[in-house]
Design a protein around this nucleic acid. Sequence first.
DNA 1: GTCTATAGGCGGATAGAC
DNA 2: GTCTATCCGCCTATAGAC
Lengths: 208, 208
Amino acid sequence: MELPISGRKDKSLSAEKTEAILAGGMQEFLAHGYAATSMDRVAIAARVSKATVYSHFQDKESLFTALIRRLVEQRFRSLFNDAEAEVLHTPPEIVLRAFANRALDMGTQEPQFLNFMRIILGESGRFPQLARTFVSNVEQTSFKMLCQYFKECPYLKLADPEATARIFVGAIVHFLIVQEMLHGKDIVPMERDRLIDTLVNLIVANHQ
Amino acid sequence: MELPISGRKDKSLSAEKTEAILAGGMQEFLAHGYAATSMDRVAIAARVSKATVYSHFQDKESLFTALIRRLVEQRFRSLFNDAEAEVLHTPPEIVLRAFANRALDMGTQEPQFLNFMRIILGESGRFPQLARTFVSNVEQTSFKMLCQYFKECPYLKLADPEATARIFVGAIVHFLIVQEMLHGKDIVPMERDRLIDTLVNLIVANHQ
DNA sequence: GTCTATAGGCGGATAGAC
DNA sequence: GTCTATCCGCCTATAGAC
């Protein structure tokens, strides 16, 4: 009756519970925010007792920061996969459009991504270290990847690749924020492709 | 001993209390967020009793939405004053740089503006109507003003003024979010003028 | 390690005096 | 209209059995 891998009924292991608590905490914190989430509901969502939660994490703040840090460093780290070598021989319009679409798909298809961003932004005043971890892992990674492409692509000779990369990412992320996060699609409508085309044209037409 | 204008000691007026409650609520909600703010502390900050708060506002949610709506519609509505006629005869580089600097100054000099943005973004899932009010009053206003300038300026002939306006605002706002709101200045340093120059050059060099 | 049960406090909201 | 005093539920965190 022993099931060494999983599905076991005895309660002797702790790593499984830790995962369950993190999963339950993720569900609750992403849905309700930090202050409005209760440890009772985290325990229920994790299917453990509240005392078990407190035996794995010192307090509510520790659970929250451990959880968000994990999301930043693992789950939402790679907005973009590493570019393959062949992209350097692909027209920049194609590469940049794919880059933009990948980022926007994250916001529209990954169901928890918008709530994750809401937490990072909304709690950036009370949890500045989490915000910095986000900048290091997500924003900086995007800037570097795009900037490296700008520098290496033989078809592009930009005056300031670093600043251009930030403009590109900024235009895309702000579009995502206004249209999806702030529910602005019906108030300031704009086709995604129209923004991307204009953005790509600005950059491709402007290499020296 | 009557002071008809202000400073009166009797408690017969209500509009003054309403203002005091809104001011106290603004202080508390902007500092701690919606869920972490208690009506006790709002009452203390407003220097009235908690019962008085509840005689002016039905519940916590009503006070919060009334307060944020007022901030959106009055205090932070005009990121930019209406353009004067002479700007059309000023070089676009100057006008666009001034526009960008005005927006970034709001984030760095108006002390409560970042907390205001944190609330709008962080609560946009639970208070979607507040987010839409923000889009209508702040984002849409910026887009329209910049777009109108793009269309009227005799030195600029842009292929898609609407999309270009959104790229411009997006690059600026995202810069503000990463550097100031998310405390990214030391992680991904970038001079403000460097971003603005690159952005302005992209647009000015690209009119058809 | 995990549970049930509970401590102790603070939350939103209201009753009733003046 | 405004106050003081209070209700009662839920909150974080822990004690103690197993």
